[in-house]
Nucleic acid binder design. Structure first.
Lengths: 188, 188
DNA sequence: ACGATATATATCAAAACGATATATAAGAGC
DNA sequence: GCTCTTATATATCGTTTTGATATATATCGT
């Protein structure tokens, strides 16, 4: 007999969490959301109109957000969105989920940014999970580094070596941040 | 009169450069390419089969790569690709182009990785361009940081503060790398 | 001989990117 | 007052990428 096929879940849209996180603090238009993302968040997350507006209208259908007001009379229309109860629930569920894609887009950072919605222990735990991942990657990079140092004289290898150094330098910075962040979270 | 509309260039596929860069060193199958990307490159670049195979067949049409051999008799077919003269030219042109998208995917790192094809001065210059970008971002982040320190007691602001600290920590690491990399490139 | 894993190509829906179109409001400069 | 530029704001479109799955063969351990 076959294993039950689940297919793809309808929650692969990462932009949803960004939008919900921002709306959890204040009511915003799609344009506002874009501005917020282009601000402090842009160092670890991106988002374009082409993903924001479709996400908003679909989340509206799903009941995760609702229109606060739609000023259509006089002047350019302006749709202000507000997060709903179920939207806040979805956001909290994501925050509490230990899994995070820390490949290039740092989901942990996003969770930290929106961490104010949950207990500090949640942010703390998310940082610790991230820290473990980073330590694993750092080990691997150091292994690469040692191997490359043996053949550094050969053509091209200096270039590979430099990129590995980049990885080590940044992952070490991540670990330093983990320590700082944990300390700040504990002290407050 | 209107400014001439150019439309979108047919070279938005970043994966092409990754593939060409890898093929510049050795002939590879699509599967091999995926393995290479998942290796040392994965710390700053990603790629999936869904982008690699279509890119390969389109680049073949464009004459940037060609089939070395296509073993179809006996066993699973295996298509080994080889870079062409025009493919190498395209790669070199990209390496020499100062512009680089260093948002989340680090094009400068990719250029450093494949830098062996051109003079060391090219890699050096690309690093310097990157360094300038990083310095600009770091300034901005420090501005954010100072502003946040004034309101750190308010709700949520510790969480925003932590993400800014992350940015600063990593960008400082990038600058450290720039110095190391420049030194290594100059010394050799 | 069997089962698991590695090799290898290919495709698909969903998501994201990046650019452009459209429209209004606000200011700046003349 | 008029025009030009910039900021606000929504929306869409083609292209690219992701992530998952389908398919098939080879290899290796037990």
């Amino acid at each position: 007999m076959d294993v039950e096929k689940v297919g793809r879940m309808a929650k692969d849209r990462k932009i949803d969490l960004v939008i919900l996180g921002l709306l959890a603090h204040e009511n915003l238009t799609g344009y506002d959301i874009k501005k917020r993302i282009d601000g402090a968040i842009s160092f670890f997350w991106k988002g374009s109109f082409g993903s924001i507006y479709p996400a908003l209208s679909e989340m509206e259908k799903q009941g995760l957000v609702k229109r606060k007001n739609s000023n259509k009379t006089g002047g350019r229309e302006k749709i202000v969105y507000q997060i709903s109860k179920s939207g806040k629930d979805a956001l909290k569920q994501w925050l509490n989920d230990e899994q995070a894609t820390n490949d290039l887009k740092y989901e942990t950072l996003l969770k930290t940014y929106f961490g104010g919605l949950e207990d500090r222990s949640i942010t703390l735990r998310n940082i610790e999970v991230f820290e473990k991942q980073v330590k694993g990657n750092l080990e691997l990079l150091n292994f690469y580094k040692e191997n490359l140092e043996k053949v550094l004289e050969e053509a091209d290898h200096v270039h590979y070596y430099l990129t590995v150094l980049f990885g080590i330098e940044t992952y070490e910075a991540y670990l330093r941040w983990c320590n700082k962040a944990k300390k700040i979270m504990k002290e407050h």
